[in-house]
Amino acid sequence: MEMTNNQFFLTTVEKFVRWAQKSSMWPLTFGLACCAIEMMQLVSPRYDMAQFGGEVFRSTPRQADLMIVSGRLSNKMVPVIEQVYRQMPDPKWVVAMGACASSGGIFDNYAIVQGVDEVLPVDIYVPGCPPTPDAVVYAVLQLHDAIQKGQAHGGVMRA
């Protein structure tokens, strides 16, 4: 077989793997604060994440590949979130949901980490205080797109 054919073949597998990765993302129930209530609405009848392959909220990090950091992250929580992130199998993605998780939000003070990206590699930031569930659904769809295009490698191949 020719080299070009090889390459062509490999890209297709990659595409297939990416398609598989994006189509069945299992989010982790990592509720921190206000945004967690809106994140819970994702499984509710109106928003229904199931149509995008994300209905299986997993409580154990071992079975999850998408961490939606929903809410403000305090300094005391940092070791916990780092450990939970480490326990998730690769590839794994992080969505910073809400102003506090993205940048500290209105809480520019001693207790709150100014953006969860200070401790975790974030793929998508969702603005809002709190963002509506529609916004989170949109963010997850954007993440799907990014995975399909090979822009989001899920914490493993950071180009």
Binding site: A33, R72, S74, K76, M77, F107, N109, Y110, A111
Partner: peptide
Amino acid sequence: IGFLHTGIEKQ
């Protein structure tokens, strides 16, 4: 407790 201490009173 304290994992969500936000400093609301100080803020």
